[in-house]
Simulated assay, not measured.
Amino acid sequence: MKQSFILSALVLALAGCSQLPEQAPAPISEVSEPVVVVEPELVENEVLNDHVAQAQATDFGHIFIDRDMSFIGTLPCEGCPGVKYHVNLFQDGKFEARQEFIDRHEVNLVKGTWLLEGRVIHLMSQQTKIPSFQFVSNNKVVLLDEAGKPVISKDNYELVRSNNFVKLDTSMQMLGMYQVIDNNAVFTSCTSGEKLTIAMTQHHIPMLRSYQTDKNLNGKPVIATMIARQSQKEDKMLFVEKFEQFWPGATCPDTLNIAKVQGIVWRVERVKFIQVPQQYNLRMLFNDNAKLYGFSGCNVFNASYSQSSNLLKVNPLVSTKKYCAQSNYYESNFTQHLQMADRIELNGDKLQLFHNNEVVVEMKPALN
């Protein structure tokens, strides 16, 4: 009897010291169902500040960049239709990115290193400033504002991971000095000042022939416009994808000190009250011998002009006769008002043509 009492007391003592919670038996009628985990998405919350919102919780604790990844998307841009982003994250801690400002013909190719802090990915480069992003899922990142908070808005601020790794498109609109020395073509970018050797490809041959057959150009440096891509290898070769034209008499613009009208390739920004889409690339040049020429979106043109102080007279244009359905409206509008201009003024980095004291054409220096 005494042994039985001691054994019972010991059992009660052990039960009282247990750290395991007492579990109630499940009702007989309850049927277990599989748990479905739904990945949360950003929602458009109403916040006092449209551009700043608190970070939202996710259903994962860690991000691993254990393979090369591509994130692609278009983000809003103040004063432009948007910026196309393509960011490649490499598992060795490096990144490369392409920023393309829509309707500006402006492309930035950036390289650097990334740093992951929790769910925030910092992109660090000595070339230019790149925004940071936060992972909202394993396959999506959202832009962070200057305060380091995810931007939540009715507009899209997210980049989505591609199913497969995508190589960066390095092609871009370029303007710079072209010259052939000892059968080697070299190009010096007006924007970066970088000197590159041009690869001998089928798209470069028409450019080379045009240069070599023109006695006024052969052997001399000349401003050229083209679409090209730079090799990602150490040789820094440049591959021409489309040759546009040469601009004899032009020089690289000094955007901080625009002192004269002549010798600069001007890009048409506006005709009367109509903004000209940059995709049509309307450009022109006034040279020092009272000639002007350019590209009006579909056709090339030239004319003579006279200028006395701010007074301007443009003689009838001579132009090719191609028809381009998309750009024809902007082309005809521009060429009509160019020939109507009676006054010219340089205001900061803007070149303005007037008719009856009204601005009819507005241009800026072309950088690419």
Rank of each mutant, 00 (worst) to 15 (best):
L367N: 10
K140L: 10
R343L: 05
E78W: 09
S153Y: 07
D169F: 04
M237K: 11
Q245I: 05
Y178P: 12
L351C: 05
K220W: 02
L292H: 08
K364N: 08
Q232M: 14
N216C: 02
E234H: 08
H203T: 06
V87N: 10
L312H: 05
S308N: 14
C190L: 04
F286R: 02
R67H: 13
T170W: 06
N45W: 04
F60S: 02
S189N: 14
E362C: 02
Y178Q: 07
F246K: 01
H105I: 15
M1F: 02
E146A: 13
S162H: 08
V166S: 11
A228T: 06
D169T: 11
G73E: 08
V261P: 01
I121S: 08
F354K: 12
L175T: 10
M237W: 03
C190G: 11
L353A: 06
R267I: 06
V83L: 09
K313S: 15
V43H: 02
V160G: 03
Q232D: 11
V107I: 12
A366F: 03
C80I: 15
L256G: 15
Q339A: 13
L42E: 11
V318T: 15
H86C: 10
S125R: 10
T128A: 02
Y329H: 14
G93S: 09
D68K: 07
M237Y: 05
V240Y: 02
N287C: 01
P316G: 05
E30I: 07
E269D: 14
S137E: 04
A147N: 13
K321R: 06
Q245E: 09
G219R: 03
D288Q: 04
P34D: 13
Y293T: 00
H51P: 00
E345L: 12
V43Y: 01
A97I: 06
L7E: 13
N287E: 07
